[in-house]
């Protein structure tokens, strides 16, 4: 088995970077030229999946392979939640990271993939501390917020980041073994994983990126200021009128997230951005972030 350090290590190298969804080799090249630290290869971006109303599965390996051959940065690909065989296929294809993603239609309504059994590292979404620690104990080597993919509305990602931070603070405030055990039960996580988090002073053993609804350089910088290690941008870039410029602007805003003058420069004259769907207009069952357990 590959050591966990090697799996989590690649995610550490991606920090301070932007991972972009791409559907063609041409888009992958644009992303690479703009300074993306990795790309997510998929058949349809979340905004289009959301619009289709169909079952969304792992992309055709042929298309993922074409993207792997077209760029030299790491290539990630998505499999359905709990779909161990799709993950095995992606590992056989030798993608650099697998995203067990709520954006696709879940294959298992109870369990996620046992990620410790794989050599390829996994990234998983989490909208609260319980999900985050469950994914880590299953073997995820990288976390991301779920946000609400394909909307261009950052509010769900922000609330996931804030909630996880509050829950970590709460965990750190617990003083007795009994309280810790009770909170582990409430979060539905193994006691050991909560204890480990407390021993690490609230730091996850893996990096945590923002994802879901990032559409502008300001959105990306906001997530960084809230403490994320980097940013996934899905539909935002290639649903805008000037993807190349926007991609570069988001990359630069993530590097200089603490410098408002620079973020001002990167936010200026980007042309028409992605259309956007307000999360409040979605019915509960239309939300992708509610998928995963």
């Amino acid at each position: 088995m590959v050591e966990f350090k090697v799996k989590a290590g690649l995610a550490q190298m991606l920090k301070g970077g932007v991972i972009m969804d791409v559907v063609t080799p041409e888009q992958a090249k644009i992303a690479e030229r703009a300074g993306a630290c990795a790309v997510m290869a998929l058949e349809r971006i979340p905004a289009d999946m959301r619009a289709s109303g169909q079952v969304c599965r792992m992309s055709d390996p042929k298309m993922i392979k074409e993207i792997m051959n077209s760029v030299s940065i790491p290539v990630m690909a998505k499999c359905r939640i709990g779909h161990t065989v799709e993950a095995q296929i992606l590992q056989a294809l030798e993608v650099d990271y697998i995203d067990e993603s709520e954006v696709l239609t879940p294959a298992d309504k109870v369990y996620h993939i046992k990620k410790n059994n794989f050599d390829v590292p996994f990234v998983c979404g989490a909208r609260n501390l319980g999900e985050a620690l469950r994914r880590v104990s299953e073997g995820a080597a990288m976390l991301r917020t779920k946000g609400e993919a394909g909307t261009g509305d950052i509010s769900e990602a922000v609330s996931h980041i804030t909630l996880i931070k509050e829950q970590i603070q709460h965990a750190l405030s617990l003083s007795t073994e009994d309280e810790i055990a009770a909170y582990a039960k409430e979060l539905r996580v193994p006691l050991e994983s909560l204890k480990d988090l407390i021993a690490r002073k609230g730091q996850f053993p893996v990096v945590n990126f923002a994802a879901g609804g990032v559409a502008t350089p300001a959105d990306a910088a906001l997530c960084m200021q809230l403490g994320c290690d980097g940013v996934f941008v899905g539909s935002g870039i290639f649903k805008s009128k000037n993807p190349e410029k926007l991609a570069k602007a988001i990359v630069n805003a993530v590097t200089n997230f603490q410098d408002p003058k620079k973020v001002l420069e990167y936010s200026t004259d980007l042309g028409e951005l992605m259309f956007g769907v307000s999360i409040d207009s979605l019915k509960e069952k239309e939300k992708l972030s509610t998928r995963g357990w």
Binding site: M13, A34, G35, N252
Partner: peptide, 15 residues
């Protein structure tokens, strides 16, 4: 540090 060499180079240039 480690990271993506293309990202680092492009960000250095554009900033």
């Amino acid at each position: 540090p480690g990271g993506e060499s293309t990202s680092m180079s492009l960000i250095a240039e554009s900033t």
